[in-house]
Design a protein around this nucleic acid. Structure first.
Lengths: 199, 199
DNA sequence: GCGACAATGGACCCGCAAGTACATTCGGGA
DNA sequence: TCCCGAATGTACTTGCGGGTCCATTGTCGC
C-alpha cells in the first residue's frame, strides 16, 4: 500500500512543505506551491494526505520536531562537563544565527503549533523531551558537585528551555541573535555560580 | 476629516481586530468577522483603513505594543528595590497566566510582527523600549550595590527579555505558565546572586 | 436650517487556493 | 507476461475572503 517510490514522494512533499512554510509562513504556503516545489502535482498531495492541508501540516510538525531533536541529540545526551555545556551553547547559538528566520523549532511553535490541538501536542511533547534531556544533564552535574545543590533541576531546565525559546523568537522577529546569546550565557553563569570549576 | 464618532468607530474596529486575532490567529481572522464583531460593515473598515488588511494589521500592532508598555510602565519605571522587582515579577506572571493564550505581546510577535517589515519595526521598537527600562532598573540597583558589578546591565536585560518572551511563547503553546515563572525566578536569582540583601 | 463632507449599509465582483474527478502510467508480484 | 493497485497528470468545481461601488443617513460648522 506504499511502494518505495511512493514513500520517497511522500517525504519529498513533506520536505517541500516544510521549506515553503519556513520561507513564507504557514498562511502563505499554498498546496500548489508545495506541489510545484516537490516536483509533483496537487493530486499526489491528496493521495498521500487524504485529509488535506491539516494532515500535511501535522506531518510537517512531526518531521520538524524530529529534526530538532536529532540535531541536538549528540550534544544533549552528553551534558556531563562544563566543556560539553559550553560546546552545546556554541552549537545552539551558531546554528540559530545561521538559520536566522528559517528555524524549524520557531516555525513549529509559532506557526504550525497553534492551529490545532494535535499540533500543540507535538509541540508539547518536543518541549518535554528536550527539557528532560537538559534536566538529566543538570542532575548529572549536580551529582558530581559541579552545580550547587541549591539549583532545582526541574525549574532550571524549564527556565533554560524558555530562554532559548525566547531568544529564538526574538531572533525571528528582529534578526539579531544577541538576546539568545545573552540568555544562554547568563544562564550558564547561573548554573556555575556556586561552583569554582566553571571557567 | 474624522469626527468624534468616526474616531470611536475606528478604535472599535481596532479592538475587534485585536480580539479576533487573539482568538483565531491572524491567518484565520477575516475582515467580515472583524466587521461583524465591531458592529460595523466591511465598508467602514476600508473607509478608515483604505489600504486594507495590511494597514489594519499595522494599527493593531501599534495598539498592542502600546498596551504592553502602558500595562507595565508603572512597575518598569520603579525597579529600584528588590521588593519592586519581585512585585513586577508577580504582575508579569499573574497577568500572563490569566491571559493565557490571549496575550497581546505574544500575538504581536508571533503573529503580526512577521508579516511585514513595518510590523517588525514596531516589534523591535517595543522590545528595545522594554529592555531599556529593565536595563535602567538594573543599573540603578547596581549603583546602589544591590547587584554585583560583574553583571552587565545590557546583556542581563537582554537575557531577561528573552526569558519572558520564551516563557510567554511556551505558555501560548502549552497553556502552562511554569516555564515563564521558572525563567523569571532564575534570572532574578542570578541578579541577586552576589548580593546578600536579596530575599 | 442647510450644505458639505464624514459615516454607514449592503450588494457586488473577482481571484485564489483548497479540494475533486477521472483518466493514464507505472511497477512489482504470481 | 499479465494484472491489480499504487503513482501521477490534468482539468475542473467551489467557497471564501479581500476589495469595490454606490446609495443613504448622520454630523458639524456656519
Amino acid at each position: 500500500m506504499l511502494t518505495k517510490k511512493g514513500a520517497a514522494t511522500r517525504q519529498r512533499i513533506i520536505d517541500a512543505a516544510a521549506d515553503e512554510i519556513r520561507d513564507r509562513g504557514v498562511g502563505a504556503a499554498t498546496l500548489d506551491d508545495i506541489g510545484r516545489r516537490s516536483g509533483t502535482g496537487k493530486s499526489q498531495l491528496f493521495h498521500y494526505f487524504p485529509e488535506g492541508k491539516e494532515q500535511l501540516l501535522m506531518a510537517v510538525a512531526e518531521w520538524e520536531a524530529g529534526q530538532v531533536i536529532e540535531d541536538q541529540q549528540p550534544y544533549l545526551g552528553q551534558l556531563t562537563s562544563w566543556d560539553a555545556w559550553r560546546q552545546w551553547r556554541d552549537v545552539v547559538v551558531e546554528r540559530y544565527r545561521r538559520q536566522g528566520v528559517h528555524c524549524p523549532l520557531g516555525v513549529l511553535i509559532t506557526e504550525i503549533g497553534r492551529h490545532t490541538p494535535a499540533a500543540q501536542a507535538v509541540t508539547r511533547q518536543l518541549l518535554e523531551q528536550w527539557q528532560r534531556q537538559v534536566q538529566t544533564g543538570i542532575e548529572h552535574m549536580r551529582e558530581n558537585g559541579f552545580i550547587s545543590r541549591d539549583v532545582d533541576p526541574v525549574r532550571a531546565s524549564a527556565a533554560l528551555i524558555a530562554a532559548i525559546q525566547g531568544g529564538v523568537t526574538i531572533l525571528m522577529s528582529t534578526g539579531s541573535a544577541d538576546h539568545l546569546e545573552a540568555a544562554l550565557d547568563l544562564y550558564l553563569e547561573y548554573l556555575g555560580a556556586a561552583a569554582p570549576s566553571y571557567s
